[in-house]
Every structure is written in structure tokens, then in C-alpha cells.
Design a protein around this nucleic acid. Sequence first.
DNA 1: GCCAACGTTGGC
DNA 2: GCCAACGTTGGC
Length: 151
Amino acid sequence: MATFLLKTEPTEFSFAHLLAKGPAGVPWNGVSNNTALIHLRAMKRGDLLLIYHTCDQRAIVGTARVTGLPTQDPTRPGLTPQGLPKFAVVPIVALAAATTPLSLTQMKADPDFATFTLLKQPRLSVMPVPETLAAKILRALDGPLPKTHPK
DNA sequence: GCCAACGTTGGC
DNA sequence: GCCAACGTTGGC
């Protein structure tokens, strides 16, 4: 199981909004940046997601789960030369809100995060999170954490 | 194929 | 609101 970080503007689509969708979840769409799309296409059912709010909040605010494989965006159909969805969309559901959101400031102050893509490529909206870092982030969020894979 | 101009993102 | 970092576009 891999872990990825997804950025969202809370004014556009907040983690609270995702939570409110419940087990139905949402298709994570609207990504156009090629590097971000490469990571989206690599997602598998069961992968863990860390949801980061940009703008005023600038913190990881909750966790979510990938519930299916990436598919084509119905509004922008097309495949890559490798036969993968060009503008990939991934179904996700919220898991839990963080009891303690982990702020960008905190991550910047921690040497363990020095090579983290979130800090090195501030404009990338979808990125993989190394396993050791993901574990550390989950401990910091200190909420009801995901324990099991979906059935 | 290069690169200048322009657009977008997101932290400050 | 500004601007740095990137990505994209289009003229050549």
C-alpha cells in the first residue's frame, strides 16, 4: 500500500466536504499538471491519502482512501501512449479528520521533512509520500487513524 | 527545437 | 496583493 498527498483549496473542496460525502466518496478530478497526473495514474485501490489544505490553513487536515483504479475523466477523455487515462480521476473516501492538523510550518521546521516533495516542489498538487514519513505524519495527526484495508 | 511571453499556483 | 517557481504556448 502506497501513500500519497493530495492538495486542495478549502474554499474549493474542503476535507469537511469530503467527510460529508461519507462512504460514497467523490471522484478526485480536475488535475491537469502532468507530474501530478503521473502520480494519480499510479494509485491503486487501498492506497492511503493525506489531505492538505492550501491557502490560509496550510496543513495536513485528514486522511482518505483510494477506493478504485484511476479512470478517464468523462469530460476530458483520452489515453496516454501507454494506454492509461490521460486526465486520470480516482475515487476516494474520507477516513478521519486529524485531531491535530500538521502545519506546513511544523514540517518545514523538522529536518525529517527536508527532502519532502511538498517543500521542494510547492506547486505540485499530487505526490507520493515515503513510507517512513507517512508513518510519522500519521502519528502527528493523532486522530482516529486508519488501521485496516478496505474489504 | 529554442526561448520569450504569458498564465497559474500557492506561500508570504 | 505580491512575487517566485514552474508550466505552457506560440513565433521563429
